[in-house]
Design a protein around this nucleic acid. Sequence first.
DNA 1: CGTGCCCCTGGAGCGCACTCCAGGTCAATC
DNA 2: GATTGACCTGGAGTGCGCTCCAGGGGCACG
Lengths: 139, 139
Amino acid sequence: MRSRGTLWRVRSYSPAETASRSGFSIDTLRYYEKIGLLSGIARDAAGRRVFTDDDLAWLGMLRCLRDTGMPIAELQRYAELVRGGDETTPKRIALLRAHDRRVEEQIARLREQQRKIQEKIHFYEDAAATAGPVADAAT
Amino acid sequence: MRSRGTLWRVRSYSPAETASRSGFSIDTLRYYEKIGLLSGIARDAAGRRVFTDDDLAWLGMLRCLRDTGMPIAELQRYAELVRGGDETTPKRIALLRAHDRRVEEQIARLREQQRKIQEKIHFYEDAAATAGPVADAAT
DNA sequence: CGTGCCCCTGGAGCGCACTCCAGGTCAATC
DNA sequence: GATTGACCTGGAGTGCGCTCCAGGGGCACG
C-alpha cells in the first residue's frame, strides 16, 4: 500500500542511527526489545539489529507516551494490544483515551502549580523592592 | 506582626496530622528533615516533632516544587538560600524563575504530545469505523 | 593479516526518592 | 501496672527505568 504512490525506498537503520533518531539509547532499545516493547526487530546476517521506518514510527509513539508519564507496564499492555491485531482497536482507543485524560489533568495541575510559583516570585520581588524583611509564612 | 489583627492562635500539628495535611508521609517528613529540607522543627518533651503553620506552608511550597519536577538536590539549594536570610532573595528569585521556565516548557511539550496522542486516537476511531484494516506506519 | 569499530549477550549496578523495619521510648487508658 | 498507640532512631530495602560491563563475534579498511 505504501509502495504505491511513494517514491522513496524502504530504509533500514543501524542501532546507532535508530538511537540518534529515536532519542533512546542503544541500551534502551535492547532493553525495550527484551521486555517486549519492540517485537519482530529484524537482524542482519551477523545478528545485528536492523530497524525499519515502521520501527522508528513505533519508537516515536513509545517516546511520546513515555514522556507524558506512561509507565513501562502500561506500554507493555499497549504493545500487546498492538500485537493482538485489529480486533484490539477498541481497547487501544480506551487505553489512549485514559492516558489522554491523565495528560490533561497533568497540564491543569502544572498550570495551577506554576501560578503558585509565580506568586512566590512576585512576593520575593516585592520583598526585595521594599528593601526590608517582610513577614511571610515560610519564605 | 501576625498576632495583631488576627484572631486564631498559632496551631501546632502532630506528625500524623502534618502528614495528612501536607500529603507527605511521616517517613518522608523525617527524611526531609534528615536531608535538610526541614530545619528547626520543634520537639515536645518526649522528643516528638511538633509542626507549626509555618512548617505547613513551607511543606506546601516543597510539595508544589516537587510535583512540578524539581529534584531534591535543587530543593536543598533553595532551602539553604531560605536559611541564608534576606540577602539571598535575588538568588531565590533566580532559582524560581528558572524553574518556572522549565514548567512552562513542560506544559508546552505535554500539549504537543497530547496532540499526537489524540491524532492516534482519531486514527484508531477511523480505522474502527471503516471496519477494515487500515495501513499505518506503526499502529 | 592485523587493527578498529560496531554490535552482540546475560547479568550486574546505579540513581532517585522514598519506604520499611527492628528495637526502643513515653503517655495515656483500662 | 499492663497494654496500646503514636512516635523515635539508624539503617537497610524497594521500585522504576534504565545504564554499564565483561567477554566475544564479524566485517571493513590499510
